[in-house]
Simulated scan of single mutants.
Amino acid sequence: MASLLESALPLSHSVSSSLTSSSSISALTCLFPTNVRTHNQLLHPRSISYPKKPLVCQLALDEASFFEPPKAEIIGSLKIKLLSAVSGLNKGLAASEDDLRKADEAAKEIEAVGGPVDLSVDLDKLQGRWKLIYSSAFSSRTLGGSRPGPPTGRLLPITLGQVFQRIDVLSKDFDNIVELELGAPWPLPPVEVTATLAHKFEVTGSSGVKIVFQKTTVKTTGNLSQIPPLEVPQLPEALRPPTNRGSGEFEVTFLDSDTRITRGDRGELRVFVIS
């Protein structure tokens, strides 16, 4: 009888014996034809009509291997997404409410994947000259961002050029460098100047940075580059505002070798790339 059963069901036996021997298979379900063989058919194998289609077997594997892209590759694609979101916004001066939302969402994606920043370990990554490519504060249409500052546009003939941050982790120097073009009465050409706002910085907590204003230096460029730098005098102590408007705090929310994202004490989102 055993040999008869083996000859009657050769396919199911061979499939099950070969598959169950594999350690990667946890379950095997075979869908047999609906016409069940009777005892008489088993005794007379020639009367058995085998199905024209092969048996359908459904396998359940113990485990499936899913290959997740490396973290650096994910961050690289998210950087491209962020750069696409802020491109064409003139550092944020031309940003609409929808642009602000898209940039903020793209930055949050990078921050989530990158994880918390620890400047006690990665302080050296701050070193260098960083170019500002986006600031949500510039959407207020003033050079001071969310703080008081000269307006851009028609009220004053001031055109904002490139903005940089120069950071020296050894001397704790933190300079904001702003290129400006000042309009002049016709037929005089516009005056190009570079203003350097010098600060000292210190790290607060794991990812916070506090900057303290030192001085402002203005240097003409272009046709007037031969003029020596001019240090802008500060107001007398008695006339200074109670809070130093040149100082501030921000948190570094993402930092690697070529990209830095910060969020200011007034909610400003800023994106820098190494230059």
Score class of each variant (00 low, 15 high):
250 F>C: 14
100 L>M: 09
145 G>N: 07
248 G>M: 10
238 A>I: 13
115 G>L: 01
113 V>D: 03
43 L>H: 13
15 V>L: 14
120 S>R: 14
80 I>L: 15
240 R>F: 06
128 G>P: 04
230 L>A: 00
91 K>V: 13
271 V>E: 03
61 L>T: 07
150 P>R: 02
249 E>G: 12
264 G>N: 11
78 L>T: 04
183 G>K: 08
135 S>D: 14
175 D>C: 11
119 L>R: 15
30 C>R: 07
53 K>N: 14
7 S>W: 12
20 T>I: 14
162 Q>E: 09
54 P>Q: 11
59 L>D: 02
201 F>H: 05
94 A>M: 14
238 A>V: 14
82 L>E: 12
237 E>Y: 12
11 L>A: 14
129 R>F: 06
95 A>R: 01
41 Q>G: 14
145 G>I: 08
12 S>Q: 14
228 P>F: 07
165 Q>V: 04
144 G>K: 09
34 T>I: 10
184 A>Y: 05
166 R>G: 00
57 C>G: 04
62 D>C: 08
208 G>W: 05
170 L>V: 09
202 E>A: 10
49 S>D: 12
230 L>H: 05
169 V>Y: 00
34 T>C: 06
126 L>P: 03
260 R>A: 04
201 F>V: 02
76 G>S: 07
20 T>E: 15
267 G>D: 15
183 G>P: 01
261 I>W: 02
6 E>H: 15
239 L>T: 07
143 L>W: 05
174 F>Q: 00
77 S>K: 07
3 S>K: 13
164 F>D: 04
86 V>K: 01
70 P>M: 08
181 E>L: 01
210 K>T: 06
196 T>Y: 07
260 R>Q: 08
25 I>G: 05
98 D>R: 03
268 E>S: 11
78 L>A: 08
154 R>Q: 03
245 R>C: 05
4 L>N: 14
259 T>N: 03
14 S>T: 11
61 L>S: 12
207 S>M: 02
80 I>S: 13
115 G>D: 01
24 S>G: 02
214 Q>E: 15
171 S>D: 08
82 L>P: 07
216 T>K: 09
274 I>C: 07
206 S>F: 10
106 A>D: 12
191 V>E: 01
78 L>K: 07
201 F>W: 05
253 T>E: 08
268 E>N: 04
231 E>A: 00
86 V>R: 00
172 K>C: 03
169 V>T: 13
81 K>H: 10
257 S>E: 09
156 L>T: 06
95 A>S: 15
266 R>A: 13
136 S>G: 09
